[in-house]
Design a protein around this nucleic acid. Structure first.
Length: 273
DNA sequence: GTAGGGCTACCA
DNA sequence: TGGTAGCCCTAC
């Protein structure tokens, strides 16, 4: 509201990245004091550096499907980076390669997330706390049922505020609850049992007791949920295949070691290429 | 001094 | 409407 936002220049970003490589994450003051980077960061505070690094990290780890297995810049410990070695720096470079890979994804990939409104209503109606549910509880509930992006908490916070402004949710202290007026009207919690399709002449199907908008939203929610489950299942299969492959590799190595041991114990010489 | 959450301008 | 990013506040 009126506060001018100053975009980070590429020079500033490069200086920040290099500063993190040299000093480690969380050493924002040190980076600012470093004469190597200070000239590029004169307009930035240590808080700015922290926020920018957070945003960069979130952007790099954006795709939820990779979050459990791919290296993320944010996961590099500050201890490891505080004493920069070639190995540490290479970790950063690997992370940056990953970042480039992530950034090359279409923004559309990121935006094809399931309907958050539906998830929020689902969580609030399931938790059923008369005092409402706080952000953590809602995030926890949704995380249990859906794959969520790394920055989901921030997204959800924005979404909740918007719903409060729209009068669909009520915020009491730090807890959110569904406004009574919102219950049973628009943006309902999609429940399968509430959707009853009945055939009519000429037009195929209509939905009893619901508007077309409600039905569309419910359908979209269900599709998104199904796609989510399908994706999670396919990832689980891939992971299982990877583990199986690793087990087979380990077996091979074990057999080879056993073979070498037996030959050695018989006094034979073993040449390893 | 830093981390994390919230707010909000801005973009697609 | 969904999402991003910069700034601010507060707790530790």
């Amino acid at each position: 509201m009126g506060n001018q936002k100053v975009k980070w220049t590429s020079e500033e970003e490069e200086a920040l990245k290099a500063g993190v490589v040299k000093h480690g994450t969380g050493k924002w003051k040190n980076i600012l004091r470093d004469p190597q980077f200070a000239p590029y960061l004169t307009n930035r505070s240590n808080i700015d550096l922290k926020d920018k690094w957070r945003n960069m990290s979130i952007s790099y780890g954006q795709c939820s499907r990779e979050k459990s297995k791919a290296p993320r810049v944010k996961t590099i410990s500050s201890d490891a980076l505080s004493t920069p070695t070639s190995q540490n720096i290479s970790s950063v470079l690997i992370a940056e390669d990953y970042a480039v890979d992530e950034l090359s994804r279409s923004p559309q990939d990121v935006r094809n997330a399931p309907g958050y409104n539906a998830m929020i209503f689902e969580a609030l109606s399931s938790i059923k706390d008369s005092n409402g549910s706080n952000l953590g509880a809602i995030v926890g509930f949704i995380e249990q049922k859906h794959e969520v992006p790394p920055n989901f908490r921030r997204l959800l916070s924005s979404k909740l505020r918007r719903l409060v402004l729209q009068g669909k949710l009520e915020k009491v202290q730090n807890c959110y609850k569904i406004k009574d007026a919102a219950l049973g009207t628009k943006t309902p919690m999609p429940k399968q049992k509430d959707i009853r399709l009945r055939p009519v002449q000429n037009s195929g199907l209509v939905i009893s007791g619901e508007t077309a908008e409600d039905a569309a939203m419910t359908a979209a929610y269900k599709i998104a949920e199904a796609e989510n489950k399908s994706f999670v299942a396919s990832e689980a299969v891939k992971e299982a295949e990877r583990v199986l492959q690793m087990a087979e590799d380990a077996d091979s190595v074990l057999l080879l070691a056993k073979d070498i041991y037996e030959k050695c114990s018989r006094g034979q010489s073993v040449v390893i290429a």
